[in-house]
Write a protein that binds this DNA or RNA. Structure first.
Lengths: 143, 143
DNA sequence: TTGGTTTAAGACAATTTAGTCCCAAAAGAA
DNA sequence: TTCTTTTGGGACTAAATTGTCTTAAACCAA
């Protein structure tokens, strides 16, 4: 079971990586991240570019260049990242794929799916990069 | 957000279609289903073939041929269909894609994901084709 | 200013998923 | 038997996702 594309997963992991850095102001090298997390450098670069375009990251070229968060990790929430990388309509889906599933004509899984989606939305809205990176810093979790 | 491939969705919908038939013993034509549900006939045929190979359906060729359930709809549960069409390891995934995410080295979403997956598993284990088709028969739901 | 380093941008290739097509095989009917 | 209908099986195509590569642009330091 998978709810995020690889692009979103890599993007999230990279953001957590950046968020768990000691010095919040310093740029983190994409090359360093790609090697440390064993993600294709070029692919990761492309994903981080869209996060930069969408105002989540600053970026700088040249020596000591890389990316950095535009906001403190505690103010960046999963839901925003997911919507940028998966699309604004991420939560507007039907379990069985009907384009217009709703109260008027619900599919057999409608009630269950509405519930599940609200659990995801709630969690994504409440989870910040700070929370995600906190235990990484303590070495209790892995990226 | 999507948790099932199109193949699984089409397979499930077709099974619900078969299950909501008046006469349980009669074969249901794949052509009829594909047209009624607006699914590619050849694609649906392929999907139903794997369900036939896996003992979920009987099939018969020629006039009045088609597919029929091998068991009463009340004895066929979603979890079985999903595992056939998505793979046995459907519930053995990490939210962030780590192949060996576990208690020893959990990812930052591990606890949440374990919970969500158990909700899905529980629901899939308890939901039969009979339940899914019940309200279709009454015309209260759509396929 | 020159050269090395690093992200930006976009073309390109590989893989996976989705869907199409053709013909064979089985079943029923004339 | 022979013809028609319908599923079986596999090759093929299309689209989306994933990943690679090349070149340009920006930045830094010597």
């Amino acid at each position: 079971m998978k709810v995020l594309s690889n692009a979103s997963i890599y993007g999230l992991r990279a953001l957590i990586y950046v968020a768990s850095q000691k010095n919040e102001k310093e740029y983190v090298s994409i090359r360093e991240m790609s090697e440390s997390m064993d993600i294709s450098f070029h692919f990761l670069t492309k994903i981080l570019q869209t996060l930069t375009k969408n105002g989540i990251l600053y970026s700088s070229r040249g020596p000591h260049g890389g990316v950095a968060l535009t906001r403190p990790p505690g103010q960046v929430f999963m839901v925003e990242i997911v919507k940028i990388l998966e699309g604004e309509d991420y939560f507007d889906t039907c379990f069985l794929g009907h384009p217009d599933c709703g109260i008027a004509a619900p599919c057999p899984m409608h009630d269950f799916w509405i519930n599940v989606k609200s659990v995801f939305l709630d969690r994504f809205e409440k989870t910040s990069l700070e929370e995600l990176s906190a235990k990484i810093k303590e070495g209790k979790l892995r990226l």
